[in-house]
C-alpha cells in the first residue's frame, strides 16, 4: 500500500543544509502494525510528516496505492490527509472548551454530510476507541489524559482512514494509561486498520508486529516479530 523509495529531506536554513532523511526506502502493506522508533533527531518525525502528507520529500518518491504523493499540490495533500490518514498526536490536540462529540466531528466539517450522519459516525468511532458513552457530551478540558487520547483516536477514525498515524501517542500519559491506549491501537489493528506508530520508547514500539529503527536519517534495522511481546 505504501512504497517509499529513497526518501530524502533536506532542510535549508540560510546557507546551512541539514539532511533529516538520507534516502529511506521501505514498504508497508495493508493491515500492518508498524512502529518507527529512533532517538530524537533521528529523522523519525520528518518521516512521519512525509507519511502523513503534511510535508513533501526533497527527493525520492512516496507512492500510496499507486499514486505518487510527493508531487501533490497543497489542496491535493489536504484531500489526501482527510481521506487516507488519521492522526493521533502526543499532545492530543483537542479543541479547548469543546465537547467530545464536536471534537470527533471536526474532520467532517465542510464535508456536506448531515448533522445526524456526523453524530452517528462520531458515536461509533468513540465506542470503537473505547470511550465511555456518558462522557460524549463533556468538554475536552474535563477529561483525563487517557480519555483525551481516546477522543483523539476516535477523531482519527472518523473518515475511515487507510492508515492511522500515531506520533508518540503515549508521550503524555502514565504507564498504566499508556498500556490501555496501546491496547486500543492493537485492537484497531486486529480489526484490520493499518497502524503506524512513531515513538522513541521500546516498550511502546513492542506492541507492533514490525519495528523500523531509524537513526541519523537512515533505516538501521527493519524487524518483523512473529510473537507480539507485551512487556507486562
Amino acid at each position: 500500500m505504501i512504497e517509499c523509495d529513497n526518501l530524502t529531506k533536506i532542510y535549508k536554513n540560510g546557507d546551512v543544509e541539514t539532511a533529516a532523511l538520507k534516502g529511506v526506502s521501505f514498504k508497508i502493506e495493508k493491515g500492518e502494525f508498524v512502529s518507527i522508533i529512533g532517538p530524537s533527531g533521528s529523522g523519525k518525525s520528518t518521516l512521519m510528516h512525509i507519511l502523513g502528507a503534511l510535508d513533501t520529500p526533497t527527493a525520492g518518491s512516496y507512492v500510496f496505492d499507486g499514486k505518487d504523493i510527493s508531487r501533490f499540490s497543497d489542496d491535493e495533500l489536504s484531500d489526501f490527509r482527510r481521506d487516507k490518514i488519521g492522526f493521533v498526536f502526543q499532545s492530543f490536540n483537542l479543541l479547548p472548551r469543546t465537547t467530545v462529540m464536536r471534537n470527533v466531528m471536526l474532520p467532517l466539517v465542510y464535508s456536506g454530510k448531515t448533522m445526524e450522519d456526523r453524530e452517528k459516525k462520531a458515536r461509533a468511532c468513540l465506542l470503537q476507541a473505547g470511550m465511555e458513552e456518558n462522557k460524549f457530551g463533556n468538554l475536552s478540558n474535563q477529561l483525563s489524559g487517557g480519555q483525551m487520547q481516546r477522543v483523539a483516536i476516535a477523531r482519527s477514525l472518523i473518515n475511515n482512514p487507510s492508515i492511522i498515524l500515531a506520533d508518540e501517542p503515549t508521550g503524555n500519559l502514565d504507564t498504566k494509561t499508556s498500556r490501555t491506549v496501546m491496547e486500543a491501537f492493537a485492537e484497531l489493528n486486529r480489526q484490520g486498520h493499518t497502524v503506524i506508530l512513531i515513538t522513541h520508547e521500546m516498550d511502546v514500539a513492542g506492541y507492533a508486529k514490525r519495528i523500523i529503527h531509524v537513526r541519523d536519517g537512515m533505516i538501521e534495522s527493519d524487524v518483523t516479530h512473529n510473537n507480539i511481546t507485551h512487556n507486562t
Binding site: D74, S78, D79, R82, I85, N93, Y110
Partner: peptide, 16 residues
C-alpha cells in the same frame, strides 16, 4: 495556531 495546525492535519483546505 495549534488548532489551525490540527484543522490542516485533518484535511481542511486552506480556503476554508
Amino acid at each position: 495556531t495549534r488548532e489551525i495546525g490540527l484543522r490542516k492535519a485533518v484535511g481542511i483546505k486552506k480556503m476554508y
